[in-house]
Amino acid sequence: MARIIVVTSGKGGVGKTTTSASIATGLALKGHRTVVIDFDVGLRNLDLLMGCERRVVYDFVNVINGEAELHQALIRDKRTENLSILPASQTRDKEALTFEGVEKVLNLLAKDFEFIVCDSPAGIEHGALMALYFADEAIITTNPEVSSVRDSDRILGILQSKSRRAKENLEPVKEHLLVTRYNPERVTRGEMLNITDVEEILAIPLIGVIPESSSVLKASNQGVPVICNNETDAGQAYSDVVSRFLGENLPHRFLEANRKGFLQRMFGGIG
């Protein structure tokens, strides 16, 4: 049985696509056949973060509409074995995704892949609902910031009431909290919600904390998922998330601020 994972958040710009790209890549690096689907019809970006934007010929909506075969639309990742990308359409509107169409494609993918990662668009409208509807597990991507936390809670409500698992009275979607853009220095200064605060408010288990890091922008500039840069803090944090997702018990890292010495504070520390 393929596991369907949705990466969702409600709020935009919190790191859903970055997370989808890295988690899908991480699962494939661990030897699992994985496909990552861009559900952001009209505003596709996953192809850019995965560095395969010039290889897109057919897309998700083409497959749903029967204009292309699934194997024609799937892009095999050049860096990572076992990994494929199904890009979103750039031209259609979000209504092009139908329950029947999405289900058909997911069923086909489930025959060939162990993990199906669904990169949700922002918002709580049609596209976001389609991305989460068939999910078995959800990674709730949240920034330590009021609007992001509130929107994550809204999305949790939707997972618990409008997903297929909720509608059919099945075991609920398994929820994981992923805090991204965490800045321990600002937390120490009392300028940012800490991990415990966010966990307490959302009351779901924490799967990882990704530190705010220049390596994330660098990776997106290059079209390489940040998890591939395993000397960076964000890359290592994502690797930990993937391991935890697969059942390993690892302590959380990158939660503490580097203490600046007196001189560093005096002369405006670098880093």
């Binding site: 509130r150 937390v187 009392g190 300028e191 605060d197 408010i201």
Partner: peptide, 11 residues
């Protein structure tokens, strides 16, 4: 000025 505490309470 611990604004994080205010954020937490509002949330």
């Amino acid at each position: 000025d611990n604004s994080a505490a205010i954020a937490k309470e509002r949330l």
